[in-house]
Design a protein around this nucleic acid. Structure first.
Length: 531
RNA sequence: GCGGGUGUGGUUCAAUGGUAGAACGCGGGCUUCCCAAGCCUGAGACGAGGGUUCGAUUCCCUUCACCCGCUCCA
């Protein structure tokens, strides 16, 4: 494709999305609503395919991940424990002059950026009144809208997984290491939704919380903790993997996934956050970015979060989030005294740091860290977690941007015309195969084509079309990204002899070349190419 | 949240203080033996609200949405 200006490309993508029914503005007839988008017929299929492929890859094809489907509204304490309420509930004051935003309770201490000798409270700049600034959508549960009934729409799906950790553990017969996966809607009242669907206020996430043993437990069991070699897929999980190896494993697994649905590796960027960028509870975070026309932006974040989340919920709920791990207990029992002591010490030191970060009272830190280290030696610990967290909508947008292409194709008279074609990977293509009678005014062709449609329909997403010239119908499907077009012609009816009878042409979206395939073999032929 | 820009059929664009046009697309019909062909025909728009005016899609105000730059982004 000739290099398009990024802005032009986005405009073309947005207009195609509307024209072909991938994405519309929410509440379009009322003028739209900022930050909300709807998926039309093709978009809905595309998005479903993405979610199903993720679920298949993460849950169905593995022994060690279980699924979950939790509610959007949860007990408000969930967001207390997670930190979402406190971090974002502070009233903020915006300065209209310097555009700064300050916590209302700090304006007396913070110097004004324009008048550094004065505090924000003292400076003459025009400022807004203090306003609550919380990115969580608030609602009320039950008929009375008072403070008692306040609840929030979840700003991420992850917390539901932590909250149901105990239940899943007990009913799924999983043992650490294992994961819990969930796909679902999340809501953030973003200040500035921007870039089409990239940052929306209502969006969908695909999140996995993969629970692993603390490194000290791994070392007790395996003798040492594997040092990942920096880059590349580390292969099948091993019992000596600590969090670093698991992190790398999931980064590579996820990149492979993106490649498997058609995003070339060259379109992706793997970004290891610098220590100063990390959230306070994160040990490491790797972003997988996609080179969107409007910039290289995050598709997925893979965070090593230690035991922060489960610990928080244990503290706030009073319910234990610990697991008893027989292997760990037995391993520690067999260790010599010196090694056991060394691992105890290391775990204890790490715990002290963690408790400190979580705001544990100074005078309790030491004792609680000791208790946790003692428990570890008896095989009881709070699992650590690796969290691959992906945005469905931004992935769909990436697939659409990646698929958009223009090339030149000859029309009926042989003149070259611009052809817009969505080069979706067949796995994600909304429609897998279109079926056409070559001409619609020949009842025999139409009848046969409908038979072929009915034959394929139980197996694939099929679109049947008999309107207009055959070339026009091919082009329509090019814009929908349909990888295959099946045409019933006169050969199919046996007019050129028995050898071609009951064969159809299959037209390839990308090459526009055709191949004759027997109707009886069509399902298998297509299935092989749609895998 | 701030500043700038843009809002006309599904899409992309025109014109106008006095009946809003086109191209492509879409529906129906004819035609057509493989890549947006042709013929006939049909449906379809001034983002919303207010104001000025005899009359507003056009001028003014407000609002909403989208785009660009800042800001924000657990």
């Amino acid at each position: 494709m000739p290099e398009l200006e990024a802005n032009d490309l986005m405009e073309k993508v947005v207009s195609l999305c509307k024209r072909r029914g991938f994405i519309y503005q929410s509440s379009d007839i009322y003028g739209g609503i900022t930050g909300f988008w709807d998926y039309g017929p093709l978009g809905a299929e595309l998005k479903r395919n993405v979610k199903e492929l993720w679920w298949r890859q993460i849950v169905l094809l593995r022994d060690d991940v279980a699924g979950l489907d939790a509610t959007i509204i949860m007990h408000p304490k969930v967001w207390k424990a997670s930190g979402h309420v406190d971090t974002f509930n502070d009233p903020m004051i915006d300065c209209k002059v310097c555009k700064g935003r300050f916590r209302a309770d700090q304006v007396n201490e913070i110097p004004c950026p324009r008048h550094p000798k004065m505090s924000v409270a003292q400076c003459p700049c025009e400022k807004t009144a203090p306003r609550p600034f919380n990115l969580m959508f608030k609602t009320y549960v039950g008929p009375v809208a008072d403070e008692e009934s306040v609840a929030f729409l979840r700003p991420e799906t992850a917390q539901a997984i932590f909250v149901q950790f105990r239940n899943v553990l007990e009913t799924s017969r999983q043992k650490v290491p294992f994961g819990i996966a969930q796909i679902g809607k999340s809501f953030r009242n973003e200040v500035t939704p921007r870039n089409f669907t990239f940052r929306s206020r209502e969006f969908e996430q695909m999140e996995l919380e993969f629970f692993i043993k603390p490194d000290e437990a791994v070392e007790a069991e395996a003798g040492s903790v594997a040092e990942p070699n920096g880059s590349g897929h580390p292969g099948e999980p091993q019992r000596n993997w600590g969090w670093r190896a698991w992190l790398q494993y999931w980064v590579e697994e996820r990149i492979r996934f993106y490649e498997s649905i058609g995003l070339p590796r060259t379109s992706l960027v793997e970004y290891w956050q610098k220590p100063e960028e990390l959230a306070h509870y994160a040990r490491a975070t790797v972003d997988i970015l996609y080179k969107f026309p409007f910039g290289t932006q995050e598709l997925e974040g893979i965070a090593a979060r230690g035991d922060f989340d489960l610990s928080q919920h244990q503290q706030f709920s009073g319910k234990s989030m610990e697991v008893f791990d027989e292997e760990t207990r037995n391993a520690f029992a067999k260790l010599d005294e010196e090694k056991r002591k060394a691992l105890w010490q290391r775990f204890y030191e790490n715990k002290k740091v963690d408790f400190g970060k979580r705001g544990c009272p100074e005078d309790q830190i030491d004792q609680r860290a000791r208790e946790a280290a003692d428990k570890l030696l008896r095989g009881t610990y709070i699992p650590h977690v690796i969290e691959p967290s992906a945005g469905v909508d931004r992935l769909v947008l990436a697939l659409i941007c990646n698929a958009y292409d223009e090339d030149k194709a000859p029309d009926e008279k042989g003149n070259l015309e611009t052809r817009i074609v969505m080069r979706f990977h067949p796995r994600v293509a909304p429609i897998k195969v279109a079926v056409f009678p070559l001409l619609k005014n020949r009842p025999e062709l139409v009848a046969k084509a409908r038979q072929v449609r009915d034959l394929l329909r139980p197996h694939f997403a099929v679109f049947y079309d008999e309107a207009g010239a055959i070339g026009r119908r091919y082009r329509r499907q090019d814009e929908a990204g349909t990888p295959f077009g099946v045409t019933v012609d006169f050969d199919t009816l046996g007019e050129k002899g028995a050898a071609l009878a009951d064969t159809v042409t299959v037209r390839d979206r990308d090459t526009m070349r055709q191949e004759r395939v027997k109707i009886g073999e069509l399902v298998d032929w297509l299935r092989e190419r749609l895998r």
